[in-house]
Design a protein around this nucleic acid. Structure first.
Length: 576
RNA sequence: CGGGGAGUAGCGCAGUCUGGGAGCGCACCUGCCUUGGGAGCAGGGGGUCGCAAGUUCGAAUCUUGUCUCCCCGACCA
């Protein structure tokens, strides 16, 4: 590719609305431009990287036995009504009507469409297992799009859907996809973790997220430092502790705690460790059902665990007014003792073995001390409700401690079971001629997000440092002063042709610009290898080869430089 | 959705409080000069100041409305 005939509008200054490094660099490198909130143009350079990644995904999906197809991005409401998600998906689902007033949506995901296709076409157990995938543009009307391609509203996604005769077969399909995902992200040279995850609005029985580790990640994940357990904190289990306290039970006593609402302030005011306090949080499913969650004062409620424990579809913190109505007590002084009937009391496992606690007295400016679960108040259920924190004991092995990371979710695999196939009546006849519901799985990869995540992990003060598999070009050839030094231009062009002939993606910087501009641009856009052709080196028959990542620079005879580039690129692209 | 902030040239911004000339840096165009890390000099083009209404002799500036964008907020009891 001739730089002078290509289109790479680089920016010297960082646009003010770009927060994270990948967003800033993708704008500055001329890879993307914003069209509207969360909606981007993919400029030629950005598209090249995206295509590189897509092809890696394609290769691995095909290798794993998945079959590529393409579904429409506009979907009829009927299918969503049939699955029930027309109601549940909420405002993220962009809905609209056609000229005949029929309702449609922009597809945020394609379980309904693929299941509809499969139920029409698949009749026999002989036709399975099947796994269809597509690489396609999705639309989710996010509350707050941000960070460029990391959380856009319109985005490119690879989604795959597996169909199997039973649960065991579906598990196999799931495992194949899981392994394919590991290969995909390893091939890109990403530092990632596969973690257990909540299934969210997609539903299903179990799932893993593939998380690229980065401080800018929107998810918190934990992993064990001695075994393989790793999970999103939304999902991460707490190791149950059974402490039997021998402490003598104090008597229950009410104490004034004027204006001390936050549990930390209460503990400080009463001069007790915060670990001996219990806080009460009221949540609702938004449909008039309220639950009071009891947690140790220094622990954080995990809303998803509470939601799942209650069997709710939605969850949110109750408002102050709702709390007063449901519990009869003011916010800041809530407690289970003497609370209104009809409120479910559900406690975190940490309350097991706690005694002589401080807890809200359901009265303005009052807390109890010496409160004891079982004696002073009843708990209907004790479940795991809190967030794991760094240093917690591993729930799976004896010696491990949990470590915390921030991660960018680039892939997610789900076991769906029969959730969609039942709703949409996707069945087949088994060997006995009996009608049976199909078992499904679904598997997503954020294409643009992965490229962005790769930039989060690979950059320096001069710009992007693309790993070779994702680089828009493997190598650049920079001709110094081509306007004047025609011998340089001719020689550089020859190198460019030779490299292209070897199958290397080359960007030939033939622009009549000052060297500084060319070096800065080449660094910014992150081309992994650079050959500089200048008159000085050429006098000795040599050119300079520089490695963007390591900074290594060497003067080499022309053919040797070409050979080195070929070898480095080939080595980076093989994966077994 | 709540709170905060911002819309002035392609990008980054000043000017708005205190109404009267639309500006600065980068980018862009022309010429000279320069050529191994975003040079220099000279000249030049480009903006209905987000949109609408109002106040005023006069509005980027004041008032009202509206649209868009950005940031913060889901552990606070």
């Amino acid at each position: 590719m001739l730089y002078s005939r290509y289109f790479i509008p680089t920016l010297k200054e960082t646009p003010s609305d770009a927060e994270v490094i990948s967003h800033q660099l993708m704008l500055r490198a001329g890879m993307i431009r914003k069209l509207s909130a969360g909606i981007y143009n993919y400029l030629p350079l950005g598209l090249r990287s995206i295509r590189k990644f897509e092809n890696i995904v394609r290769e691995e999906m095909n290798k794993a036995g998945a079959i590529e197809m393409l579904m429409p991005s506009v979907q009829p409401a009927e299918l969503w009504q049939e699955s029930g998600r027309w109601q549940f998906y909420g405002k993220e689902l962009l809905r609209f009507k056609d000229r005949k007033d029929n309702e449609f949506c922009m597809g945020p995901t394609h379980e309904e469409v693929i299941t509809d296709m499969v139920r029409r076409e698949i009749k026999s157990y002989r036709q399975m297992p099947l796994n269809f995938y597509q690489i396609q543009t999705k639309f989710r009307d996010e509350i707050r799009p941000r960070f460029g391609l990391m959380r856009g509203r319109e985005f490119i996604m690879k989604d795959a859907y597996s169909f199997d005769v039973d649960s065991a077969a579906a598990d196999l399909s799931y495992e194949k996809m899981y392994n394919a995902y590991v290969r995909i992200f390893e091939r890109c040279g990403l530092n990632f973790r596969a973690v257990e995850a909540d299934t969210g609005s997609i539903g299903g029985s179990s799932s893993h997220e593939f998380m690229v580790l980065a401080d800018s990640g929107e998810d918190a994940i934990v992993s064990c430092d001695s075994c393989r357990y790793a999970a999103n904190v939304e999902k991460a289990e707490v190791r149950p502790v059974s402490v039997t306290s021998n402490a003598e039970l104090m008597s229950l006593e009410k104490k004034a705690t004027p204006n001390k609402k936050a549990i930390i302030d209460v503990a400080a005011f009463l001069k007790v460790p915060v670990e001996t306090t219990i806080k009460a949080l009221v949540c609702t499913n938004g449909e008039g059902v309220f639950a009071m969650a009891l947690l140790r004062g220094d622990h954080d409620l995990n809303e998803i665990k509470l939601k799942n424990a209650m069997g709710w579809e939605e969850i949110r913190m109750a408002t102050d007014d709702e709390i007063l109505a449901a519990s009869g007590a003011p916010v800041g002084f809530l407690g289970p003792i003497g609370v209104k009937d009809g409120l479910v009391i559900i406690a975190d496992v940490a309350l097991n073995g706690m005694s002589n606690c401080v807890i809200g007295a359901n009265e303005t400016d009052m807390h109890y001390v010496g409160a004891n679960p079982g004696r002073d108040f009843m708990i209907e259920r004790i479940v795991d409700l809190r967030n794991v924190v760094a240093g917690d004991a591993c729930p799976r092995c004896e010696s491990g401690k949990m470590e915390m990371w921030r991660g960018i979710e680039v892939g997610h695999v789900f076991k769906l079971g029969t959730k969609y196939s039942e709703k949409l009546n996707a069945t087949y006849l088994d060997a006995d001629g009996k009608e049976t519901v199909i078992f499904m799985g679904c598997y997503g990869i954020g294409i643009g997000r992965t490229v962005a995540a790769s930039i989060e992990q690979n950059h320096d003060e001069n710009g992007i440092i693309f790993p070779i598999p994702l680089a828009p070009f493997h190598c650049s050839v920079v001709a110094l002063n081509p306007g004047k030094e025609t011998g340089v231009l001719a020689q550089a062009e020859e190198i460019y042709f030779k490299l292209e002939k070897l199958g290397i993606d080359v960007l030939f910087d033939d622009r009549d610009e000052r060297p500084g501009i060319k070096f800065k641009d080449n660094d910014l856009i992150g081309i992994p290898l650079r050959i500089v052709v200048g008159s000085k080196g050429l006098a000795e028959g040599k050119v300079e080869l520089k490695n963007r990542k390591t900074g290594d620079m060497q003067l080499l005879p022309i053919d040797e430089a070409i050979e080195q580039v070929r070898r480095i690129v080939d080595n980076a692209l093989v994966y077994e």
